[in-house]
């Protein structure tokens, strides 16, 4: 069972968290009342398309049985290593290729 570092609570067991999804997906701004076909397509892509990369993956988790904050985690989906975790609205640090 993974240990996920919550920026508020420290490392906690995976069972306290809920996986939310890909953190590189950004919800397109939908505030413009006029909706172009491109905007519709972008929104549809946001709702339905997911990458399935092998290796490092930025993802949102919610500390749902803890402080309830959302966090952004960079996790390797091959071996489940976590190399960074920040608050949801912060940027993850960048890492050199291949680390």
């Amino acid at each position: 069972m993974m240990l996920i570092p919550c920026p508020w609570c420290g490392p906690r067991a995976e069972s306290e968290f809920t996986y939310i999804g890909d953190a590189r997906r950004q919800r397109p701004d939908t505030s413009a009342l006029e909706v172009s076909p491109e905007a519709l397509q972008a929104h549809s892509d946001y709702v339905y398309l997911r990458d399935n990369p092998k290796g490092w993956h930025q993802e949102y988790w919610q500390h749902s049985s803890g402080c309830r904050a959302h966090l952004k985690v960079e996790r390797n989906v091959v071996d489940h290593r976590i190399r960074a975790s920040v608050k949801a609205d912060e940027a993850l640090p960048s890492f050199p290729e291949g680390r």
Partner: peptide, 13 residues
């Protein structure tokens, strides 16, 4: 509740 928290934390911080 989780839906609201998600939008406040992630989509519209």
């Amino acid at each position: 509740l989780a839906h609201m928290e998600y939008h406040l934390d992630v989509v519209w911080p």
